[in-house]
Structure formats: structure tokens, C-alpha cells
Amino acid sequence: MLSVENLTVQYGHIEAVKGISFHVGEGEIVSLLGPNGAGKTSTLAALMKLVAPQSGTITLAGENISGHGTAQIVQRGMTLSPEGRRVFPRLSVEKNLLLGGMVLKDWRNPAVLERMYARFPILAERRSQLAGTLSGGEQQMLAIARALMASPRVLLLDEPSLGIAPKIVAENFDLICQLRDEGLTILLVEQNVFQSLSISDRAYVLENGRIAASGDSEEMLKSDLIRHSYLGVADPTQAA
């Protein structure tokens, strides 16, 4: 569904992503793990063209989208729920959602909105409240709902459990599984290694802008390397 070849992202002299390749199959949840500063957010930003990658080929559903701008990519069916939620704080919940579906022809279709409210009843209750006044968990829900409004085929999630109560985190992971079961393809960036490995099909571990490990999530759960790279220790033998 999504495949990435030799992606490189540079900020001035800093090379944040150093020629990585990976793919996400249709209907898969793939985790992208790694310590702080590994280049996870930069990878997602490059996929959405929020930053211009130095090199790399990005293919979405068989179409080369490397030359597309953000708006075109959203229209082609890939959306991102960004790190730190980033809801529009001084707009109502409903307007945040409408903005999410803005690329659609009938962006004000009440049926789409009602379907989203049916999935997220709390957002329905809060529809006219300013998004900045929601709790962190509710804002995260809104950020995901907003990314779903454009009816994407591929959903990119950047740390959906960052700074959120454990109970809500569990609900978030349930939601992600549910979305996958409905046919959505998901690339999940997480610090919450154990939980994301337990719901994902495959995983890549990013370290210093390079893919340090990849494989089946189930197998990775058993490997020591993961625990170490999660803790940010480069060489597991030294830590031992």
C-alpha cells in the first residue's frame, strides 16, 4: 500500500533520516519504533511533504507520489495525526473535524460528521466546545478523528499515547485495531513499545536515522534488542 525507498531528510547539516526503506502492506499495522531523536517524526513529515526530503521514492497504492505536495497526498488518501495532537485550539471541535474533511468535494456532508460522532460520542457531546479546552485524551481522539475525516486509505499516527492516561492509551490502541479491522492501513510511531508491538503486524526500529532492526512484531517482542533500543542504548551488550 505504502512503500518508501531510500528516504533521506536533512535539516541544514543535520541528517535526521539517512536513506531508509520500508513498506506497509494493505490492511497492516506497522510500528515505527525508536528512541528520542531517531528520526520518526521526520520520516512522517517527509511522507506528508511537510519537509522536503533530500532523496527518496514514495509510492502510495501503486502511484509514485514523490513529487506531490501535501494537499495532493491528502487527496490521494494518506493523512497524519501529528505528534503532540496539534488540534486547532481556538476552533470548535466540529470545525476541527470539518477541516479534516476539507479536501472532500462535499466537505460539509452531515452524514460523514455523524458517522464520526457515532464512533466518538465524547466529541459529539463537545462539538461546539473550543478544541483547546478539551482534555489531553480528548484532544488526541479529536486529532485522530480529524485525520479520519478525509476517508484515508493510509493513516499515519505519531505517538498517539504521548502524555495520556494509561486507561485512555488502552482505548486508543483498541481503536487502532478496530480501524485496521475495517481495512485501514496504519503506520504507527510509538514510544510505547510493548503495547504497539502487541497490536502491530510488523515493526521497524529506527536509530540515528537508520533502520536498526525490522521484522515480525511477535518475534520482536521476544528480542532483547527492542528493549535496549527503546531505552536508547546503542549497544545492548554494553548495557548488559
Binding site: M48, T70, Q75, T79, R86, F88, L91, L99, M102, V103
Partner: peptide
């Protein structure tokens, strides 16, 4: 309006406005 809302959203968070497909 769509244009108006795009403008307001861009004023609040330009990067995320781009993510909404706003040009």
C-alpha cells in the same frame, strides 16, 4: 466558508493546516 475556515486554521497552525490539504 471553506476559504474562510482555511484562513483561520492557517493562522492558528500553519503546518497542520497543510495537513488538512489546504494549499
Amino acid at each position: 466558508t471553506k476559504f474562510g475556515l482555511s484562513l483561520v486554521a492557517s493562522a492558528q497552525d500553519f503546518d497542520v493546516a497543510k495537513l488538512m490539504g489546504i494549499r
